[in-house]
Design a protein around this nucleic acid. Sequence first.
DNA 1: AAGGCTTGCTCAATCGATGTAGCAAGGCTA
DNA 2: TAGCCTTGCTACATCGATTGAGCAAGCCTT
Lengths: 335, 335
Amino acid sequence: MKSGQKSTIYDIAQKAGSSPSAVSAALNGKWKQRRLKPETVERIKRVAREEGYTANLQARGLRKAESGLAGMVLPDHENRFFAELSQQFAREAHARGLCPAIVHAGRDAEAQLTSVDSLIAYSVDLLVIAGATRSPELAQACRSANVPHVFVDHPCAEAPSVVTDNTGGASVLAKTLLEDMPQPEESDPATWLYFLGGERHLPASAERIQGFRQQCDAADAFFSDDQILACGYGSAQAEQALSALHQRLGRLPAGLFVNSIDCFEGVLSVLSHLPETELARSTFGCYDYDPFAAFSRFPLRMIRQRADLMVEEAFRQLDAGTAGPRLIQVSPELV
Amino acid sequence: MKSGQKSTIYDIAQKAGSSPSAVSAALNGKWKQRRLKPETVERIKRVAREEGYTANLQARGLRKAESGLAGMVLPDHENRFFAELSQQFAREAHARGLCPAIVHAGRDAEAQLTSVDSLIAYSVDLLVIAGATRSPELAQACRSANVPHVFVDHPCAEAPSVVTDNTGGASVLAKTLLEDMPQPEESDPATWLYFLGGERHLPASAERIQGFRQQCDAADAFFSDDQILACGYGSAQAEQALSALHQRLGRLPAGLFVNSIDCFEGVLSVLSHLPETELARSTFGCYDYDPFAAFSRFPLRMIRQRADLMVEEAFRQLDAGTAGPRLIQVSPELV
DNA sequence: AAGGCTTGCTCAATCGATGTAGCAAGGCTA
DNA sequence: TAGCCTTGCTACATCGATTGAGCAAGCCTT
């Protein structure tokens, strides 16, 4: 509350007529062990309050080799799922008395590594890494710095990881769509169920394609690899791919499984040019959730990833001190 | 890269056969001023690389009385606008070589103060505070710790603030809606334009109401205070308020100005129960933006706040060292 | 050959909080 | 009255990086 700079324990000690160690002990509740008189403690606390003292956490962190910071690395903030992850992360961090430091590092492997290094350099007490592009290096960095860490969304083969049950979720969605649409016929590609978006070689997409495939096979609805349109995650790419399909089929396909909310945006821009009647003949599903997509002009099944449960589970791993590889799957819900 | 703990400049110094000061100077590009031989610098750098050395930023921060951290306080992460703010904040922080630490503190004044104090205790080099509930205390805390700070979204009377031009944005939206709908008649409340959501006493709402009011007055379309339904920011409240209005009028009003995306969610759940024909008779606008809302079943005007420009402007203030009160308005765009 | 300048480095204090070791004063026992 | 314990506190080293001060060796000048 005074004039210029923040006060330190030395200032407090002087004004309270005692020593820095006494101040430290008094303010950290360690005064019983240090055998300070209750009156002394009271005096110190009063002075500290008057001076508006707050501990310099960098100094404390340096001394104790920890920081009180909980680090999280995210690819971006604009995606709803990641936003929910960070929200929940902040909640859990607070619950443990840690200050959440959330860094969005994009999807570039180098940038992610830089961010992780940077957080480690601040001696974060734990690290949650979401959507890692190249996880082994990141895990290595954490391990050599002795920082407890968990991967979320994209797993790491060498560390505890919490991921959505992609195969299961895709299965459920595909099954629902197949039930809602007429039985596909091999002879007419327009009656098939299509998978749109993502990239075959990325783990998440691969798993979803697997789940999709399983259900199609089970329903005798898989006829050709053409049903998988892994055009990437961008909305523009999805738009283009769907346009091309629409052109080729001469109509919309009977069923469409869209692999992400971004892709769904591309899908919507195609659909917005089409008449109501054409939409009515098709069934749509999206592997991702957005409350407004729920209000679209046609019925839409969505898979919602449980960011809340995933982060909870991640902290459970951290609390338990799990260090080796461990894969935990969290089931998403169908909306 | 070695076995156990992180290496320090002392370790590097020893292995390179020099002193800690030399290591520090070499690795920080200060070797010219400190007159180290280029070869020595090379040797030190090589050893540092081999050992996988990274500076302990807490120690550096303690010594230099700064941290390399850029702090941001947000009410939450799930709102699209705040997500964009944080995204842009992270970008700007990186561009300045700072590590973004984003803390979501909710809308509770106490929690926000705690978060600000905590960030200050880490010696953040700057602080951007978004959606402050009680700004004076927060500004006070920053000032007494000498931390450069800017308020965003909710202004502070004692510090530089960057806000959306709410009145202007609301004016534009209201004007557009009035142009798109038939001329309201005083005798028939169903032909009026209504304002839905927010709270009269909150600055942002008050300004938007003012802009709304201006345009209505200019178009001879303001007849009664009943046109302002400041029911709060929740989607459930908006849903209830709109239901009640629908009941009372016997139909949807001719025009509806929805004050936030959350409220709009509530509006959508009312609309989803109504037939297409009824929706077609009304004109809708929302003071907030969501890409999926853009694809709704009926035409919808939206105001998009320019989070990017706002954060840019905030950093411009920080760079300029503005300290006193200063209010900067950023115009939102009509979508 | 004494004095001064340059080059290339090292020493040691410092930032603020923590915690171990230990000191001084008083009380109690033998 | 010496020896020991308890109580209530202080001194000092420590964490790791930074930086002002300064030292030693070599060269140049006059």
